[in-house]
Each structure stands twice: as structure tokens, then as C-alpha cells.
Write a protein that binds this DNA or RNA. Structure first.
Lengths: 201, 201
DNA sequence: CTCTGGGCATGACCGATGTCACGCCCGTCG
DNA sequence: CGACGGGCGTGACATCGGTCATGCCCAGAG
């Protein structure tokens, strides 16, 4: 019997996934969590073989949760299940020591299959996505450029960003300008969009 | 036996929802669709009692699909199931003649309950969301302002918008300026974000 | 130790943006 | 009919935003 933990913020989806897994005779859902920062605690209690984690969750994102989980409970393998096929996500997830990366676009029967393979110690990654991650490469942005760009996504002005990061007006504009060039964008808005799409935010 | 059609673009979620409904003795999933513009066709063939529609789908959004479905197959009631609790969505959905509006945040057991109530002809709407929709009011933007703002979401410049809509540079800036004021934003980026969050896009 | 690259900053330049004051045309509503 | 509001336009103005040249400081690589 494979013991599974499910972490997913949308209750309906969480329940539906549990129902999907309940069909399988060799899989048992032993814990359900609705936020990223509750994953480790629940896992320590329930001691699952596989943790099925969403990426975008309140409290803590699934990738960070995965990294912590690997440290605290190395016996538990991690399978990421997410909507977003962003190359940057895959890369970070692999760095965090995950065993598998599955998209919510994939056929439903692949979920049980992926869990079984993960439990056996195999690695499960969508080949399309893996290729994309390799071809995209990792983020060209320096940490500071990333910070500045991230703040501009919500429509913050240069001054607001500068104040918030304790920088000068000019420095912020320089960082933004460089980020815009690196991403082949026409302005900060487009640059932010591109970075977000690739998972570099 | 209540016959249900499921329209949801993410295969895994679609399958999981089907599994969730398969547990219920009085509910039968008679059709599954993965895009908005396939809903009517599938519904005419399968003649379901309730159509469970996601909003964000390729081809056509669920609200538009709902409106068409009401015309072509009035016997089929529509239940919207979506992640986004945007007041504007609810308002438009109600205008499209839907019978229920459910969030993916809701507890899983509410899905079957909502389907039964919808089939019986009752209206099912999250009360929190209904309140929000009432208090938000409808979009303050004129159609033209909406168009212009929508184009700026992806980082288009004034000239690009103007060319695309066959308007003058100045007119576009006027529309944007007014939209920014109406939404209490500091710039177009923030205005676009606000409008999107409220479902006014 | 020197070279290199990231982070930070200044100052200048020009084009893009946001605001304002007008005016014109048209459909609708009282 | 006359007032009103939406869509469209112009011109002007002040600020913001994107780019460039240049320099300083510091840590890590060679």
C-alpha cells in the first residue's frame, strides 16, 4: 500500500484528487493539507511514501515545501502536480530534490501511474516540459534585477520600488532597463510578463 | 439519475471531478469536454440535466458557452465551477442564465449537493461571493475604455493600441487616463490589474 | 594580486505617459 | 428640441520611464 499526502489549496480539487486515488487499490491518501507551510508537519505525523504537492499555495510554495520535506523526511518522495508548465519551476523543483513533476493537463490515469513510479524510486517528468526547461536555460536575471522586476508586476512606480528596496531612483531604473534588454521586452510590463511566464519571477 | 456534463480544460482535474461524482449513486457523468466551444455540441448529443462548466477554457469561455447552451438546450441547467471568485464573473454568469456558481475553494461534498439542487431547479450561489458582487457593483468602464485597458495588460504601448484599434494616439491616452482615474490606480499597469481582479476585463 | 562581474549611484537625454482644456459628432432620454 | 454622455480628436504641459556613459565598492576567480 502506497501512502500518499495531498497538498492543494483548492478544497474541491483536493477532494476530487483524493477520490481519483481512492479508486486505486494500492494507494491510500493518509493526509490532506491546504497550505504549503503545513506540509512538513502533516508529513511527519502521517509518514507518507509520496507527497503530492501543488506549487501555488498560500503560506509557502510547493517547491520550498518540497525542499524542507526532503530534509526532514528523506524517506518521503515528492511529486509536484501543477497547472503551470513553467521551465523555471521545473528547474527549481529538481534542485529541491523532487522525484516527479506532473501537469494538471496530463491524463488522469497518469496520476496513479506517476505515484507508483515515484514510490518505486523512479523519476517522473513530462518529456515536453523537460525539453523546454533545457532549451530555455535558467534565468538570466541577477537577484537584484529579479527583485526590482517582481515589484513592478503589480504596477508599482520606480519611486515606490526604490523606497521599498532602499535604493536610488536611478539604480532601480538601471536594473529595470537591463532586465528589459535581457528579456527582449519593450517595457517593464512586458518584461515582467515574460519573466513570470517562464517561472523566473 | 442526474445526467451531468463536465467542461474543464485540465484533463487531470476533469478526471478527478468525474471520479468525485462517480461516488454518488444518483449522478452520472454522460459527457466530458476540454474546451468551451465544444460544450453545446456535446450537450446536444448527451442531453445532460446539468452542465458543470469551468470559466477559463480554450476556444470559448464558460460564461459564453453557458449563454449559448441556454438557448440551444433550455432543459439543461448550468452550474459554473471556477477558481476565480471575481464579482464581474458572477454578474456576467447570472446574466447568461446560469443556475449556480461554485468555487473550487468550496468543500468537495458541496459539488454533489450543488448539482442536486441545480437539477431540482434551485439556484446555488456562494453567499460571500454574491455579497461581493452586489457591493462591487458592475464595471464603471465604458466599452471603449475596457478595450483599451485590456490591450495594455500585455505591455502594449500607446501606439500599438492606437494602431490596433484604429484610433489616435491621443484618444487612447484619454481613455487610459479616464480608466486610471475611475479605478483609483496610479498608472495603466495597476489599472489593468485592478480591472482584471474584479473580472471587468 | 589583478581581473571580472554584480550592486549601487549620478547625470543627462529624449521619448512615452498621464493630465487637462477644449471641441465635434451622434444617439438617447426627458 | 435641448441636455447629456460616450466616442473621438487636438494641442499643450509636466512628469515618468528607458537608455547610455561613467564611476565606485566589493567579493570571488584566476
Amino acid at each position: 500500500m502506497i501512502k500518499v499526502l495531498i497538498a492543494e489549496d483548492q478544497a474541491m480539487i483536493r477532494g476530487a484528487l483524493a477520490a481519483l486515488l481512492a479508486i486505486e487499490d494500492d494507494i491510500e491518501v493518509v493526509a490532506q493539507v491546504d497550505r504549503g507551510d503545513g506540509v512538513v508537519e502533516a508529513a511527519v505525523k502521517a509518514n507518507p511514501d509520496v507527497a503530492l504537492l501543488d506549487i501555488e499555495m498560500p503560506g509557502q510554495d510547493g517547491i520550498t515545501a518540497a525542499a524542507e520535506l526532503r530534509k526532514r523526511l528523506p524517506s518521503c518522495r515528492v511529486l509536484i502536480l501543477t497547472v503551470f508548465g513553467r521551465p523555471g519551476y521545473l528547474r527549481r523543483a529538481v534542485d529541491a530534490g523532487i522525484s516527479g513533476f506532473l501537469l494538471k493537463d496530463a491524463p488522469p490515469d497518469q496520476l496513479a501511474a506517476a505515484i507508483r513510479r515515484t514510490a518505486r524510486g523512479e523519476r517522473v517528468v513530462d518529456s515536453q516540459l523537460a525539453l523546454a526547461a533545457l532549451s530555455e536555460g535558467s534565468s538570466p536575471l541577477t537577484p537584484r534585477e529579479r527583485d526590482v522586476l517582481a515589484m513592478s508586476t503589480r504596477g508599482a512606480s520606480v519611486e515606490e520600488i526604490a523606497r521599498s528596496l532602499r535604493l536610488t531612483n536611478g539604480t532601480v531604473r538601471n536594473h529595470l532597463s537591463i532586465a528589459i534588454q535581457k528579456l527582449n521586452a519593450r517595457n517593464r510590463t512586458e518584461a515582467a510578463r515574460i519573466a513570470e511566464e517562464k517561472g523566473w519571477l
